[in-house]
Nucleic acid binder design. Sequence first.
DNA 1: GTATATTAAGATAAAAGAGTCTCAATAACA
DNA 2: TGTTATTGAGACTCTTTTATCTTAATATAC
Lengths: 153, 153
Amino acid sequence: MLLSKSCVYGLRASLYLASRTDGEYVPIKKMSDKLEISFHFLTKILQQLTAEGIMESFKGPNGGIRLNRNGNNVYLMDIVLAIDGSQLLTECALGLPGCGTKNPCPLHDKWAKTRDSIRVMLEETSLTELVKKGKAENLRLTTDGGFDILFQD
Amino acid sequence: MLLSKSCVYGLRASLYLASRTDGEYVPIKKMSDKLEISFHFLTKILQQLTAEGIMESFKGPNGGIRLNRNGNNVYLMDIVLAIDGSQLLTECALGLPGCGTKNPCPLHDKWAKTRDSIRVMLEETSLTELVKKGKAENLRLTTDGGFDILFQD
DNA sequence: GTATATTAAGATAAAAGAGTCTCAATAACA
DNA sequence: TGTTATTGAGACTCTTTTATCTTAATATAC
C-alpha cells in the first residue's frame, strides 16, 4: 500500500473540506457520516492535521473543523507528509538504511526516478484542483454516489 | 511503504541468487546470514517464491534454493506480484472500491499515470540487469559492505 | 540403517496499524 | 447556571504484519 489508511482518510476529509467554500466549521460527525469513516478514527486523523496547522478546529455547538489555508492552496503532499511522513519519498526500495547517491543499492537510480514521479504528482496536485474536477464531473469521494451527494444536508 | 518487508527481502534474496551463475543450490541459512535476514522469516518468503515457480528448492545436504528461470530472465514485477500481489497496481489512491476509468475518484487519472510509471519500472527491470550493475559498481545488498563481500565464502 | 543437512509446515509471539470506547475540556445558548 | 454539542486525549481492543520456535519430511553419505 502506497499510503496508510489514515492518510487516505485524511485526503478524503481534506477534499471534503476543500469543497466547502463557505468557510464554516464542519462537525467531524457529519464528515464521518458522509465519508463513511469511523468517527473516532477520523477524529484522530483530523487532530493530527490540526496540529500540523493544515486545519483548524473549534469546540462546542456550531464547532467543527475547517481548512486553515489563509488563502493558500493545500497540496496532497501537505497531507501525506503530515500523516505518513517522508518515508515514501526517501526510503530505499530494498530497505537498506542510508541508501542514496553516495552509497546506493543496485536499484537506487531507477527507484529514485520512480519515486520522483510520485513526489511531483503529490506536490503539484492541489485540493482545489481536485475539487473543481470532482464537482465538474460529479466524481465520487465515497463508495457509492457522486460528489454532489456529499453536500446535500 | 511501497513494498512490504517480505517483498523487499524477497527482492534482495532474488538478486543474491541471480548473481550466482553456477546454477547450484544455495542453502537458505547461508543467504540469511549474508543478507542479514532472519532465517525462518526468509524461509517462508522463499517458500512462496518456490510455490510460484520463480525458484526451486532441494532438500537435504547440498540442497538449498536457486532461481528456476529456464533461461528466462526474472523481472522485479515477478517477485512483487508473487509476494505483495497486484494491489499496488490496481488500488485507488483514495481507497475507493471499484475505482477505475468507469467510475473514478477525482484523483484517479493522475494516480493511474503515476502508478503506471511504477508498473513500467518493475516490469522492465530484470534481476540480471541489476546484478550486472551491482557487480560492475560494487553496490550493496546489505547494510554495509559492497556487492562483492556476498560472494566470498 | 543411522546420523546429518537441509527445506516444509505449523504454532506461537511480538510489533505495528486500524479501529473503538470513555471521559475531560470547551463553547453556545436557553 | 445547567444542558447540549462539539473537539481533545488517553486507554483499550482487534487485526495484520513481522518474526521466532518447534517439529516433520526428505535427501545424502557413511
